[in-house]
């Protein structure tokens, strides 16, 4: 057994220095992913880098049209404090695990693990979020749709840590929905986030747990954006035709790249995504029409 060192920086600059000096040490935020690996003997880290004392990571704030959420903000905090600004992210947070998991698990930890099934990811894609990462030398932002580079692999460098995520505040209806075997404590069989951006005429999507990485349904976005613009539907707020909803759902389903695994089959995932897409568009467009009245 390797001897593990325990590092506990008290500030963000100290954390970045510790990261640079100990590239093999595993960062730990809420520990809800890392500790499972450690407890089961699947991970024998030479060092553990506890980020729990870094106050800078625990904060969030509004800046112009965006919210900057620190990497150490927990699911419980997303639910109670950011429901108004980031409704789909708060909804996704509420589906994660159980209250004790939501009290410890963080947005940054979800991104660190970069599981294709991570529930924050589809929302970050649909909202057009940017992940802010830093090393002791430099800080940069990575668009969410470039952050996930493979199953459980992200764009983070060996000397980098995630400092926060920049997420545009909702300007229209959003939804997050997730298919699982139970109404709690489930890893998604598949999931879908949808965000309507009436201010820019954009439509954002994010598919979870149906591909090697979380995916955007780009063709579905472009199709719906085109249809809404062409018909002046953002202004008229007319109901959407069945055929449009069907086509959108079909394109979402086609954008997925699912596999058969223990949680579900490829066919089931494609089918479920079609259903989620139909429902999500129905809910969001209805909310948009209602809000205007």
């Amino acid at each position: 057994m390797v001897q593990t060192t325990f590092l506990q920086p008290a500030s963000w600059p100290e954390a970045l220095e510790a990261r640079a000096a100990n590239p093999d040490a595993v960062p730990v935020a809420g520990g809800t992913d890392v500790l499972v690996e450690v407890n089961f003997g699947r991970l024998h880290p030479s060092g553990l880098l506890d980020l729990g004392r870094v106050r800078e990571l625990r904060t969030w704030g509004r800046e112009k049209g965006r919210v900057r959420v620190g990497a150490g903000v927990t699911y419980s905090e997303l639910i109670t404090q950011l429901r108004g600004d980031l409704p789909a992210l708060a909804t996704a947070a509420r589906t994660v695990g159980s209250p004790p998991i939501r009290n410890r698990g963080t947005l940054g930890g979800n991104l660190g693990t970069a599981s294709p099934a991570g529930d924050c990811h589809p929302v970050l894609l649909a909202c057009g979020a940017e992940v802010e990462v830093a090393s002791s030398r430099v800080s940069r932002t990575v668009p969410a749709d470039e952050f996930f580079v493979g199953p459980k692999r992200n764009a983070l460098g060996a000397d980098e840590l995630i400092s926060g995520v920049w997420i545009p505040r909702a300007t229209g209806p959003q939804s997050f929905s997730k298919v699982g075997t139970r109404n709690a404590m489930v890893i998604a069989v598949c999931s879908l986030a949808l965000a309507l951006h009436p201010d820019s005429g954009r439509v954002g999507t994010g598919i979870g747990s149906a591909g090697p990485v979380p995916l955007r349904a780009r063709e579905a976005e472009a199709f719906l954006e085109g249809h809404l613009a062409e018909r002046g539907a953002w202004e008229s707020k007319r109901p959407l035709e069945e055929a449009v909803v069907d086509r959108f759902a079909e394109l979402v389903s086609q954008a997925a790249a699912p596999i058969d695994d223990v949680r579900g089959s490829l066919r089931y995932r494609r089918h479920a995504l079609r259903v989620l897409a139909r429902r999500s568009l129905g809910w969001c467009w209805n909310d948009y029409r209602e809000a205007a009245r």
Partner: peptide, 18 residues
């Protein structure tokens, strides 16, 4: 399950040092 500084947590997922 225990309270850690008043917050409900799974103590199996908290490092001793944390």
């Amino acid at each position: 399950t225990v309270y850690l500084d008043g917050t409900l947590v799974c103590s199996c997922l908290v490092l001793a040092g944390q």
